[in-house]
């Protein structure tokens, strides 16, 4: 039995209405589905052959793989190109859930997926997505999390990329709950390109931990990790990024940057960029720049009549400019901006 997205909570209904293709999961069930031709959906975990790619030594991952309330596999047929993104809306309110989605993207497909995780209650949401990117496929995976103050969530995204594929993962943690986010990407085929860009804003006494792990398991692979964060009030925000180039995977590039602004006097922001390299013929870099808002910049903006909070808001919005690439329409842009305004209290 399908319900119209208009029955969705007020906050997310406009986002669903705006989406050309969408899948709306609420109360552990698919409520609504407007997926286009060429994409098949099965309500089960992936086939064994596919599953083998995602075997993980992370106990939480294995737990979520075998214990789930909802498991969905989306198969994107070879060579499919979509004219609009697919919105995957997951409402985690009212119950404790584990949701597991597998994207099986066949060779040469070209697809944008927008995941929106949402919750308005003090429940736990475990979310695991497994993306298999076929040869020469192009995938943009955007994940926005907006989870309630009292909720606890673990969000894990596993990506396995085959030869000459291009994968961009962009995530934004804009909710108020305790959150742990992992992105674990393996570049398995030669010339695979992977990029993981995360924006996280922590406020109140929230704890947000962002883990990004990118492994180069084939030659001539290219990987980028970018973390952008703001820690306000008394929050804690941690960035753990690891780029790993395995032995023999020559002419690979692994780069990582971390940028953070600490707003609150008692807020904490840590960044631990790691590079693990077992091969000589590679290019790699990592760095972290964490600090408070530049007093001189603030003074400059204020000298033109902007109040301190307006000046701060402009600087923070500018700093979090990577968010802009996640705003594919006006509704989403306004939505993200209002979330941000709530988070930074201005």
């Amino acid at each position: 039995m399908q319900v119209s997205p208009n029955n969705a909570p007020e906050l997310i209904a406009p986002l669903l209405n705006e989406a050309t293709y969408m899948l709306y999961i609420s109360q552990g069930k698919i409520q609504s589905n407007t997926l286009p031709e060429g994409i098949t959906i099965t309500e089960s975990t992936p086939k064994d052959a596919l599953h083998a790619n995602f075997v993980s030594d992370d106990p939480l991952v294995s737990h979520n793989q075998s214990n789930h309330d909802t498991a969905i596999t989306l198969e994107v047929k070879e060579g499919i190109t979509l004219d609009a993104p697919i919105m995957i809306m997951i409402d985690g309110s009212n119950y404790d859930y584990t949701v597991n989605i597998t994207y099986d993207i066949h060779p040469r497909a070209c697809i944008d997926i927008h995941e929106y995780l949402y919750s308005t209650s003090d429940h736990t949401l475990n979310y695991l997505s497994q993306t298999h990117v076929g040869e020469q496929a192009q995938v943009k995976l955007i994940g926005i999390a907006n989870l309630d103050l009292m909720s606890t969530s673990s969000v894990q995204r596993l990506v396995r990329s085959q030869a000459s594929s291009h994968t961009e993962v962009r995530t934004a943690q804009l909710g108020n709950g305790r959150t742990k986010q992992d992105v674990d990407m393996d570049l398995l085929g030669e010339h695979a390109y992977g990029e993981v860009r995360t924006v996280a804003v922590a406020s109140g006494n929230q704890e947000v931990l962002i883990n990004t792990h990118l492994e180069h398991k084939a030659k001539q692979t290219e990987g980028y990790i970018e973390h952008y964060g703001v820690a306000a009030d008394e929050s804690y925000l941690g960035f753990e990024g690891t780029g790993k180039i395995h032995k023999g995977m020559s002419q690979s590039n692994a780069h990582q940057s971390n940028n953070g602004v600490v707003l609150g006097e008692y807020a904490r922001l840590d960044a631990n960029p790691l590079l693990l390299i077992d091969e000589y013929d590679v290019e790699a870099s990592h760095g972290a720049a964490i600090g408070r808002i530049d007093e001189e910049q603030l003074y400059y903006l204020m000298s033109r009549g902007l109040s301190e909070s307006d000046a701060q808001r402009l600087i923070i919005n500018g700093f979090l400019a990577p968010l802009k690439s996640m705003m594919e329409n006006d509704v989403m842009r306004d939505h993200i901006q209002s979330l941000l305004a709530n988070k930074t209290g201005r």
Binding site: I315, G318, L320
Partner: peptide, 10 residues
Amino acid sequence: MQAPQEVPGV
């Protein structure tokens, strides 16, 4: 100002 600030992102 003599040395105006650069504010990337704004």
